[in-house]
Design a protein around this nucleic acid. Structure first.
Lengths: 182, 182
DNA sequence: CCTACCGATCGGTAGG
DNA sequence: CCTACCGATCGGTAGG
């Protein structure tokens, strides 16, 4: 996961991975059916880590606005903890595979749709509890929340902006506040 | 540029480019000092196209809020015109090179800082003309505006969301409206 | 898990 | 602009 975030999933060659692990190339490939299989399992491992560190912790919080905040803060904190070395695995993988058809792209699409869908569902729940206004469009708010989180990763990884995650937190807080009932 | 946006700057091999152009590999390499030189010139060409299609057109508009809107609409329209084939060159190149030190990364950083700086400067101008409130922080607003534009590219290229650019336009309009004087 | 090997492709050079 | 070639590396296999 770390290698793939920095050098790309395609950039993790079997030999390179073998050197990193102190074993032979055939020793590595014995664990995977092919390089594509290695890539799929790497994406699955990143999804599992994300599920544990972000989704499960948020699931303990009350459904609605509180859980929505926990999902976003969990995402931000998790990526922040991985900077400057690598940053967000899914951001890097998205850009690498958005133009390459195949099972890796399809898996990434399914995972990202699930996460964006979770944000949308939590906005919807917060509307039912009256914590967010009914005239807010869940898909639009989820789009903007996800946008500022991804921007934080971009600004930190490419530009080295140390304040990127604080900017994302401020934007999330303002977006949610602007969506509250009068 | 088109090949690099889809397959990555590293993925454009000299042989691949030669095939595409119907010439020999040595014929291609004769025009460049090295593959890194080819990558640098590709980034420069993309920056030049961006300058012509977005920055120069916006420069004709009145400084302040109107020019800020023109910069953002120019960016959105330019990337929208290139989808679904490839999307935004700089988004793809950012993710590919954010973890690779060297002159290509440095060039990308300089270009992206210039563009974000231009947005910030235009916010500042709009504050001086009274079109935007003085208590708005230019760097924070520029962060959020840039975020929704990048998110549109991500949502369209990876998820195939046809409404991504309309969502970005709506978010830009709302962000600017929320920053106007009471 | 290993060594040894396959054909293909990589960036780049020599020489014209 | 070309052909011909260099050593290195790619994913993957054979055989143990």
């Amino acid at each position: 996961m770390d290698l793939a975030t920095m050098e790309g999933l395609e950039g993790v060659s079997l030999q390179r991975l073998a050197d990193e692990l102190g074993m032979s190339k055939s020793g590595v490939i014995g664990h995977f059916a092919s390089k594509e299989d290695l890539q799929l399992r790497t994406v699955e491992a990143a999804a599992e880590r994300y599920r544990e560190e972000v989704m499960e912790r948020a699931a303990d919080r009350e459904a609605g606005l509180e859980r929505l905040r926990a999902l976003l803060e969990g995402w931000i904190a998790q990526v922040e903890a991985r900077t400057p070395v690598g940053g967000c695995f899914f951001w890097a993988a998205s850009a690498e595979f958005d133009g390459r058809p195949g099972p890796v792209r399809e898996l990434l699409v399914a995972l990202m749709e699930r996460f964006v869908g979770l944000l949308e569902a939590e906005v919807h729940t917060a509307q039912r509890t009256g914590e967010l206004r009914a005239d807010v469009e869940p898909a639009q708010l989820a789009f903007e929340l996800h946008a500022v989180a991804q921007e934080a990763n971009w600004a930190r990884q490419l530009l080295g902006r140390e304040d990127a995650f604080e900017r994302a937190r401020a934007a999330v807080a303002r977006l949610l506040e602007a969506s509250r009932p009068a």
